[in-house]
Design a protein around this nucleic acid. Structure first.
Length: 510
RNA sequence: GAUUCCUUAGCUCAGCCGGUUAGAGCAUCUGACUUUUAAUCAGAGGGUCCUGGGUUCGAUCCCCAGAGGGGUCACCA
């Protein structure tokens, strides 16, 4: 492997540090007393700016900038909270005859990206920047590759930004080091999940884990990843959903269960799809989809407030401000189509629907049944227009093989999707718990499979057996966590809300 | 999967309608500098111009194929 000039210099510096008798990768705990942000926030200055309440602080982090001026130098140290400036003067850190600690180690052998720890007192420079006057510094870890060096000027303009999406996503460790502003996306993601978990715990639901490796992939319409178990000598699938397992747990007698599930779908990738993604699913016994709508909007309102760190329920996305405060608008699918197209699909048979599609310039083909035609009209003419959180209810039965038939409307099921900013965020229904009906639905799916639909759901005899033992009426929901994070952080690409989005293999040989 | 655009130094980018030795800023190296902050000043080094073919006297540039990435569409959440 060819090494660049800068890498060779750093390796040489590494050896020279060892020659000074200093371990470049020390093992011992380093006792940090303050984060950079705390120092910048809590320092209170005396009149002369030379002394503060912070008479001795110890911080650690990467050296991100160095400004050396002969016998003194400034540097920026970056830790998890941000950056703080340090001031190093030769005679303070090397008071004796031997000035090697400053002249050799600090000035020559220290490279941008190296980890150091410093101890000193806090003061304010002539130009007004809070800084640590270093009296002791410790080498904590060498960086052998040069980091990109984005810089921000007086006007806030960023120069040399590290902004190539490929490099940022492949080397997230570099990205988040030099673009720490993106850390906030992941902090929000973490806060969102924590908030949702605490809300669901408050409902006395139990967090569970169910198999990712499955012999039958059920619970959604999608192509799975296939793998193989050597000892069992059988093919297995990575789960596309955990729905059927969570419902087995309702059969088992838990009143409510939830799981933040990594699911895997072997389909196209684009700005809203990654092969593995996170879905929160939860199921609650003795509830229906009406209850679930109430719960969903309460959960989201609570979670958005928590993520925003206050009472704010709004999020700005481009030109739109989305308000997660409930209650959300509820609209049946038929009414939504009436509202946005003026077409009445309520009593339309398949031929009538085809005529409507033609009028609306919706593309159709012969394989589409009634449900699919309605779904196409909705997808083409309604979905993108629903910006504020909206529950679309009462879906055609054909596309919902796990959903209970509507209690009063023929041909429909008790299902809703939550649409926000024109995108589906959640999908929920009154769960089908009639095992005889469920078996018929699976048989319908098998017919689709026989016609070549590779996304149809396979028959799951064990799941049917569970239902035959009896499942209480249950409401269930799946909420797309990645997409919700995209909304809350204003990101247009799913890659920006995943630490390590899927990418093709990189050739590192060269 | 289809289509389109992109790939030049560690980073961000110029450039070459095909022509000696491929440029800049930051970063790096050498030197100066004890309150700087995109530190400054003086000097220097650094390149498989994504890869492989082809056309040509000559290709980083044109053509073909491939790799990787971005956008759009299709499938889907």
């Amino acid at each position: 492997m060819e090494r660049s000039e800068q890498e060779l210099v750093r390796r040489a510096n590494l050896e020279k540090i060892r020659e000074l008798g200093i371990e470049p990768f020390p093992a011992a705990t380093f006792a940090v007393t303050h984060l950079a942000k705390e120092i910048n926030k809590t320092a209170e200055f005396a009149e002369d700016n030379l002394s503060t309440n912070l008479t001795e602080v110890t911080v650690a982090g990467r050296v991100m900038a160095q400004r050396i001026m002969g016998k003194a130098a400034f540097a920026s140290i970056q830790d998890s909270s941000g950056r703080v400036q340090i001031y190093v003067s030769r005679d303070d850190i090397a008071p004796g005859e031997d000035k090697a600690l400053y002249n050799t180690l600090f000035k020559k052998l220290l490279d941008l990206g190296d980890f150091i720890g410093v101890t000193g007192h806090v003061f304010k420079t002539r130009t007004g920047e809070t800084s640590i006057h270093v009296k002791e510094f410790t080498f904590l870890g060498k960086s052998l590759r040069p980091l990109p060096t984005p810089k921000t000027d007086d006007e806030g303009k960023v120069h040399d930004a590290f902004n190539d999406p490929e490099q940022r996503h492949r080397m997230r460790y570099v990205d988040l080091t030099v673009n720490p502003q993106f850390k906030e996306i992941f902090r929000k993601r973490s806060r969102l999940i924590t908030a949702m978990r605490s809300y669901l715990d408050g409902l006395e639901l139990m967090e569970v884990e169910t198999p990712i490796l499955q012999t039958i992939h059920g619970g959604a319409a999608a192509r799975p990843f296939k793998t193989f178990h050597n000892t069992l000598d059988m093919p297995m699938y990575l789960r596309i959903a955990n729905e059927l397992h969570l419902k087995r747990l309702i059969v088992a007698g838990f009143d409510g269960v939830y799981e933040f599930a990594k699911d895997f779908r072997n389909e196209g990738m684009d700005r809203t799809h990654n092969p593995e993604f996170t879905l929160l699913e939860f199921y609650v016994a003795y509830k229906d989809y009406e209850w679930m709508m109430d719960t969903c909007e309460a959960l989201l309102e609570f979670s958005v407030k928590t993520v925003n760190g206050g009472e704010t329920t709004t999020v700005k996305i481009g030109d739109n401000t989305i308000d997660f405060k409930g209650p959300y608008r509820r609209l049946t699918m038929a009414d939504s189509i009436m509202e946005y197209t003026g077409e009445d699909i309520n009593d339309a048979d398949e031929d009538a629907l085809r005529a409507i599609c033609k009028r609306l310039h919706v593309h159709t083909d012969d394989s589409m049944g009634r449900g699919k035609l309605i779904d196409e009209i909705f997808g083409e003419h309604v979905e993108a227009k629903l910006i504020q959180p909206t529950f679309i209810t009462d879906y055609p039965i054909e596309m919902s093989p796990l959903t209970k038939k509507h209690r009063s409307k023929e041909g429909l099921v008790e299902r809703f999707e939550l649409i926000i900013n024109g995108k589906e965020i959640a999908n929920s229904y009154s769960e089908l718990n009639d095992p005889i009906d469920q078996r018929e639905r699976f048989e319908e799916q098998a017919k689709l499979a026989a016609r070549g639909d590779d996304e149809s759901m396979p028959m799951d005899e064990d799941f049917l057996r569970a239902l035959e033992y009896g499942m209480p009426p249950t409401a269930g929901i799946g909420i797309g966590i990645d997409r919700l994070v995209m909304l809350l952080t204003g990101q247009k690409s799913i890659q920006e809300v995943l630490f390590f989005p899927q990418m093709r293999e990189e050739n590192l040989e060269k």
